[in-house]
Design a protein around this nucleic acid. Structure first.
Lengths: 195, 195
DNA sequence: TAATTAATTAAATTAGCCTTCGATTTCGGT
DNA sequence: ACCGAAATCGAAGGCTAATTTAATTAATTA
């Protein structure tokens, strides 16, 4: 078997699993459900993946890697904190938009990872959040943002807004991801700005 | 048995279940887990509740009812759209703060309701969202808010921010729910305002 | 064509699940 | 001390779960 058509069989399995996990949740999704989606028997899945959880691991850590790449690019730039925040938000949205299904799984199902994967995942996540928090703190120091606002509250509100996007955004909608990113950045960054 | 101490046995069951569902998710929580939390056998639970799902129903619809009550109060007031939105946000936060555990379950686990409960739940929810959307549209009409912003985007961003609060807010924190509501309302309403 | 590899399957394993049932214990009120 | 209701339990029924194993078919390579 080679990478026929577009997707290898393994990739097909993972993609179908992502859809299933998003719809029903990881714990409520059975390997039989998944097999049925692909028109094969549950046992056949195990030629392509090691376990149900391996699928979840691949989905979660691949998304995490994309997010980190995007943020690293933004951090390099030499711009104001407001602008850096804007770019970070737009980047985050674009990464999600590339795979809304995996994004939804990443966000809602990561807790079903077993140790030590769960711990690793949460460490990546807290690191990502803290880097956004650092940008907000810089903005406050530089006088761009109000300093009356609690920084943890600000960054958590930001991520809440971003992370729920895959739940309601319709890729067939008139508003394209880039435009969505800009509007979101407008709302969220302006909410932080002075005056 | 009467309403001894503070909580009836049934209320204890429901409260413990809420904690369990929040931690592990509904599908991954077993009735044995729940029984163990209470120091009894799984079979004993069925003297207090009809089924596992009944617990979820009670949690979800009780929260829904609280949210609706809060919003109805706000809608009565004769104030600007901005102020109405602020009050709506603060009310929503306060309802959640009264029971963070149930709020988290309400938000993340409602999809495991079976029909027709799921349908009813979603109808309540869309109604609630639309009433917030109406406030935002009023604000745009009255010139309080930018009209460049997509209304669906605005209201979804709002709810995303609000609904994730139970996931990160620490009730032992210095910032009290009322203050939290005010700060959140500041960030989110200012993000919508003109200029 | 023959050999090798990939993909699939049926069947079995092991384990857990929710729920029901009948019997038993607990306990406040009389 | 006794009654009745509430609470609990042990055992079992009936399912469904993830995964392993051994055997079979399909596809590719040489």
């Amino acid at each position: 078997m080679e990478a026929v058509g577009n997707l290898s069989r393994k990739e097909q399995v993972i993609r179908s699993a992502a859809e299933l996990f998003r719809e029903k949740g990881y714990a409520a999704s059975s390997m039989r459900d998944l097999a049925q989606k692909l028109g094969i028997e549950a046992a056949s899945l195990y030629s392509h993946i090691k376990s149900k959880e391996e699928i979840l691991q691949l989905l979660c850590f691949d998304m995490a890697s994309e997010f980190r790449k995007s943020l690293a690019e933004v951090e390099k730039k030499n711009v104001t904190a407001s602008e850096k925040l804007r770019l970070g938000i737009i980047g985050h949205i674009q990464v999600m938009a590339k795979d809304l299904t995996a994004s939804a799984v990443f966000m809602n199902e990561h807790r079903h990872l077993s140790q030590p994967y769960l711990r690793d995942f949460l460490l990546l996540r807290i690191n990502y959040i803290n880097r956004f928090k650092a940008i907000i703190e810089e903005g406050a120091r530089m006088g761009e943002f109000k300093d009356t606002i609690d920084k943890k509250l600000a960054v958590m509100t930001l991520f809440s807004s971003l992370n729920w996007m895959p739940m309601w955004y319709d890729p067939a909608s008139k508003i394209v991801p880039t435009e969505l990113g800009h509007q979101l950045a407008d709302m969220l960054v302006n909410g932080l700005k002075k005056n």
